[in-house]
Amino acid sequence: TFELKGKVGKVVKIAEDHYLVEVEGDKWIAYSDEKLSLGDRVMVVDVDGLKLKAKRIP
């Protein structure tokens, strides 16, 4: 999973306390310091076990 750092994905679902992000065809649980919206493009900035930390990108 460490190779996911720096990869770009898309928010495909918003849950109460996390997001579901699709990166290279796989879906991952993600969290972010900022509020994300459905369809936002994100970059993986860190990997915490099986969770990704994501940041919105333009």
Results as ranks from 00 to 15, higher is better:
3 E>Y: 04
51 K>A: 10
7 K>G: 03
56 R>L: 13
51 K>E: 07
38 L>S: 07
20 L>M: 12
38 L>I: 08
2 F>N: 15
38 L>T: 08
40 D>G: 05
30 A>G: 14
10 K>T: 13
34 E>T: 06
12 V>I: 10
47 V>T: 07
57 I>Q: 08
53 K>N: 04
55 K>G: 09
31 Y>H: 13
48 D>F: 08
13 K>M: 10
18 H>F: 11
30 A>F: 02
4 L>N: 06
20 L>E: 07
9 G>E: 00
33 D>Q: 08
27 K>W: 11
32 S>Q: 03
30 A>W: 02
54 A>R: 00
54 A>F: 10
29 I>V: 11
30 A>D: 00
24 E>N: 05
49 G>P: 04
15 A>G: 08
43 M>T: 08
4 L>I: 14
49 G>T: 05
46 D>T: 03
55 K>D: 09
7 K>N: 04
4 L>A: 07
55 K>W: 02
46 D>V: 02
38 L>Y: 08
17 D>Y: 10
1 T>H: 15
6 G>E: 04
40 D>N: 07
51 K>G: 04
11 V>K: 00
50 L>A: 12
3 E>C: 08
29 I>P: 13
1 T>W: 15
22 E>S: 07
17 D>I: 11
16 E>V: 11
22 E>K: 07
6 G>H: 02
58 P>I: 07
27 K>V: 10
26 D>K: 10
15 A>S: 12
31 Y>V: 13
56 R>N: 05
40 D>M: 06
43 M>L: 12
7 K>S: 07
40 D>W: 05
45 V>L: 05
21 V>S: 00
48 D>L: 08
40 D>C: 08
31 Y>M: 13
48 D>G: 01
4 L>V: 15
50 L>N: 14
19 Y>Q: 03
5 K>L: 15
55 K>I: 05
45 V>Y: 02
13 K>L: 10
56 R>P: 09
37 S>P: 03
32 S>P: 03
50 L>M: 12
12 V>D: 05
21 V>C: 05
15 A>I: 14
18 H>G: 13
56 R>S: 07
5 K>C: 15
44 V>G: 01
28 W>H: 06
49 G>N: 12
35 K>H: 09
30 A>V: 04
4 L>M: 14
57 I>V: 12
30 A>L: 04
37 S>N: 12
22 E>A: 06
1 T>N: 15
42 V>L: 06
53 K>R: 05
17 D>V: 10
18 H>P: 00
35 K>R: 12
1 T>G: 15
47 V>S: 07
6 G>P: 00
11 V>S: 00
22 E>Q: 06
27 K>D: 10
47 V>Y: 08
25 G>Y: 06
20 L>T: 10
45 V>M: 06
26 D>R: 08
47 V>F: 14
2 F>K: 15
18 H>I: 13
50 L>G: 07
42 V>F: 14
11 V>C: 13
52 L>W: 01
13 K>C: 10
56 R>M: 09
37 S>C: 13
53 K>Y: 04
29 I>T: 10
46 D>Q: 03
3 E>H: 04
19 Y>D: 02
14 I>Q: 09
28 W>V: 02
35 K>M: 10
29 I>K: 07
53 K>T: 05
34 E>K: 04
5 K>P: 15
8 V>C: 14
23 V>W: 01
37 S>G: 10
30 A>H: 01
1 T>K: 15
21 V>I: 14
56 R>H: 08
36 L>G: 00
52 L>P: 01
8 V>Q: 11
29 I>A: 11
20 L>Y: 10
12 V>T: 10
39 G>W: 10
28 W>Q: 02
15 A>K: 13
50 L>W: 14
45 V>W: 02
1 T>V: 14
37 S>F: 13
45 V>E: 11
13 K>N: 11
9 G>I: 14
21 V>A: 04
49 G>H: 08
8 V>S: 11
8 V>D: 13
10 K>C: 14
26 D>Q: 12
43 M>G: 04
19 Y>M: 12
34 E>L: 04
7 K>Q: 06
23 V>P: 00
44 V>Q: 00
58 P>D: 13
27 K>T: 11
3 E>S: 02
57 I>L: 12
41 R>S: 14
9 G>K: 00
10 K>Y: 09
40 D>Y: 04
26 D>E: 09
19 Y>G: 01
36 L>Y: 03
40 D>Q: 04
5 K>F: 15
19 Y>K: 01
54 A>V: 15
6 G>N: 04
16 E>D: 12
12 V>G: 03
17 D>S: 12
10 K>W: 09
36 L>E: 00
20 L>C: 08
42 V>R: 00
48 D>C: 14
18 H>K: 08
39 G>V: 04
8 V>T: 14
49 G>K: 06
24 E>A: 06
23 V>F: 04
45 V>D: 10
39 G>L: 10
58 P>G: 09
58 P>M: 09
10 K>A: 13
10 K>F: 09
10 K>R: 10
42 V>Q: 00
25 G>A: 06
42 V>T: 03
35 K>P: 11
48 D>M: 09
36 L>S: 01
1 T>P: 15
34 E>H: 08
26 D>F: 14
52 L>M: 03
28 W>N: 02
18 H>D: 12
7 K>W: 02
56 R>K: 11
57 I>C: 15
3 E>P: 15
24 E>L: 07
54 A>N: 01
48 D>V: 14
34 E>C: 09
46 D>N: 03
28 W>Y: 14
53 K>C: 04
32 S>V: 14
48 D>T: 09
9 G>T: 02
17 D>E: 11
8 V>I: 12
27 K>L: 10
46 D>H: 03
47 V>L: 04
41 R>K: 12
7 K>F: 02
41 R>C: 14
32 S>Y: 02
36 L>C: 11
55 K>Q: 13
26 D>A: 12
55 K>H: 03
19 Y>N: 03
3 E>W: 07
56 R>E: 04
12 V>E: 06
4 L>E: 15
58 P>N: 09
48 D>Q: 09
32 S>R: 04
31 Y>N: 14
3 E>D: 06
30 A>R: 00
52 L>V: 13
34 E>S: 06
25 G>Q: 07
58 P>C: 14
11 V>N: 00
7 K>P: 03
47 V>R: 04
7 K>Y: 03
